[in-house]
Nucleic acid binder design. Sequence first.
DNA 1: AAACATGTAATCAATTCAGTTACAAGAACA
DNA 2: TGTTCTTGTAACTGAATTGATTACATGTTT
Lengths: 144, 144
Amino acid sequence: MSISSRFAVGIHILALIDLNKETASSSEFIAGSVNTNAAVIRKIMGMLKKAGLIEVQPGVAGAKLTRELSEITLFDIYKAVNVVEENELFSIHDKPHPDCVVGKNIQSTIEPIFMAAQSAMEKVFQNLTLEDIVKDIEAKEHIK
Amino acid sequence: MSISSRFAVGIHILALIDLNKETASSSEFIAGSVNTNAAVIRKIMGMLKKAGLIEVQPGVAGAKLTRELSEITLFDIYKAVNVVEENELFSIHDKPHPDCVVGKNIQSTIEPIFMAAQSAMEKVFQNLTLEDIVKDIEAKEHIK
DNA sequence: AAACATGTAATCAATTCAGTTACAAGAACA
DNA sequence: TGTTCTTGTAACTGAATTGATTACATGTTT
């Protein structure tokens, strides 16, 4: 099991749009940097657009961020690319036997725990923005 | 995407073994409570056995916990049933283009963040034991 | 009109999951 | 002993998801 790389690719796309903002980043260009097919990029960019993170126009190359880097959290991207449904990171077997002490109660016992675990994970992304990503990339460049 | 229900089933199995400890819990019996096939239960019990959480003997019905309830964390179960590999909850696209500022650095920038998110999630399970689960189930029974 | 862009649908191979069947091998007991 | 019940495992299935790919309609620019 592994969470789709759409999330990582989404971050990559947005960071690239920003760092390359003097020239328009076509889906073909981004695909080259990510190392995948342009259609894959366009599909993910469609999700980012739908979430209101970027502006793209059909037929015209390049996309623009709709907000400041510091106003886009990793959680925004995470939600945009739809890698994990709300409260469904962990799946629970359904219809456990209702006549059994454990079967009767296990779901309501486990559910809040799974939700807490998912929330703890998502909180990490809520506390980080694209600005952190871009600054980290820039810092690495300056060292070299 | 969703993490395998093996985790939830593993918790169910162990709680049931404990709450039903006067009588032996065969895989058939447990399967009835979980509402699945006995072979599925035996496969998961094999994982729990391999992780040293239970003792089972081929041919003889019933399994026993090897430790106190309070000594078995949900994280132990999580690891036992192998639902998420170490540091691989999130996947990152590989071979991003090395000549691109973003492509060159994105992996090393994102990796520690993904690891931190996974750790935050796992920590929730490290801080809970089977005792918490069993007590919660018992409490629900007493209210009714 | 030609060239280039995005949007989107369809298809494909690979992987994973859970369920199912089947059967070998161990254990218990009449 | 031999019947019966158990665990341990392998093999197979259908469903779902992922990422890649191809194709093409549509929009934009010159």
